[in-house]
Amino acid sequence: MRDEPNRGTGPAGTPDAEDPWRRLPAMAPAGRTATTAPGRVRSVADPAAGPPAPPGGRTVAPSPLDPGAALDPHPVHRRLREEFPLTYDPLLRAWVLSRYADVATALTDPRFTHGHRPGDPPCARAHTDVDLAELRAVTERTAYVLARRIAGRPQADLVADFCHWLPAGTVAAAVGVPYRDMMRLVRGRAAAALAGECGAQIAVREKALASFLGNVLSDPDRTAALRDAPAGLVARAWTESLRLDPPVQIAVRRTREDVRVSGGVLPAGSSVALLVGAAGRDPERFREPDRFDPLRDDADQLTYGSGFCPAVVLAGLEAEYALRALFGAMPRLRLADGFRPVSTGLITRAPRSLVVRPNG
């Protein structure tokens, strides 16, 4: 008899989720489960629900959508990793995976379908005429223009004044859209037509950049170490920020067949919610997983695949030239007195503001 996953209910009726970055459904399937309290799913007698419910009829499993998780999802993620590596969440209408090994498998294994990350294998076949020198040039130019615009201010918000504009600006310059039309065209539906599926994911790069700058500026020693750092160290810090604070916290896949994972077997045809944020802090994969350490020798991230993709290249270049431009135009740049970055969000996550003193 095969292992059965820890269930609150079965996956019947769960919808397809072709896009891993899309917003997940927030309603439970009618007649299947009932929420009794935040994080506690009451099992309902159902032939598809697997083995009998534990005494009391309750499976104590927190939900990634629990109240308070938008401000601090890490306690929920930790408990899911440790106690419920496989559970069905009626709010997400999907099975939930939270351990690094399982999430990494679901993002790359052909037994899972309906999803695409920039840098996944299809990118290598789709992007054949990319001018890397041009990408670097437009990223550098855009970053320095934006940095100089805020250098003379007594105070600025890097999210609103820099992160919000740099990813869109690099795509606009790369595809030849006039700067004045950047936000109207590149950030709208025209983005996919202009820049392709991967390059159009501007909001993901915005959030990743905001988290990266927040991680760099939140520690004075870290700021000093990266102020004039070589590109290699900046790239390692970028990877570490993607691990610690990924912009997409939950991605969606669907199983093609039964798949054995930690805690049991995922049934074929199931929607699966992958907690990328939880996987990046799995102590079974990373030492001191809650610590930002760009020099770690167990570095990895799950936001992007490992294959070539201009969106992945752009994201790394934006991180590199963001630091070079900001520190070049504002050598004494620091967070405003008393300000600390606070990340929010359930599906995507990043600081909403980064209030800085450009001149120290």
Rank of each mutant, 00 (worst) to 15 (best):
T113C: 11
G56Q: 06
L132F: 09
G10A: 07
E257C: 12
R78W: 09
V276D: 00
R227P: 00
A229R: 02
L166C: 06
V41A: 02
D129F: 03
A133S: 14
T59L: 15
A193E: 15
P11C: 10
V355Y: 01
R205E: 10
P20G: 06
E4T: 09
S270V: 06
T105G: 12
R78F: 04
G328L: 06
A101I: 02
L266Y: 03
G188L: 08
P38F: 06
N215Q: 15
P122Q: 10
T87M: 13
A251G: 11
V261E: 00
A48F: 05
A210Y: 03
Y321I: 04
T33F: 03
F212C: 09
D258G: 08
A192E: 15
H164F: 14
V44K: 03
L194R: 07
A315R: 00
V145H: 10
I347L: 08
V175H: 09
C123L: 02
T14K: 00
G57M: 08
A147I: 06
T14V: 02
I150M: 12
R58H: 10
L314K: 01
A268K: 05
P29K: 04
Y179W: 13
V175G: 04
V159N: 01
V261Q: 00
D161S: 12
A329Y: 07
G152Y: 04
H74T: 09
F327C: 12
G188Y: 09
A329P: 07
E82L: 13
P351I: 08
S270D: 07
G176E: 05
L354T: 02
P289K: 03
V312A: 14
G119R: 08
R187V: 13
G360K: 12
L333N: 07
V177D: 02
G196S: 08
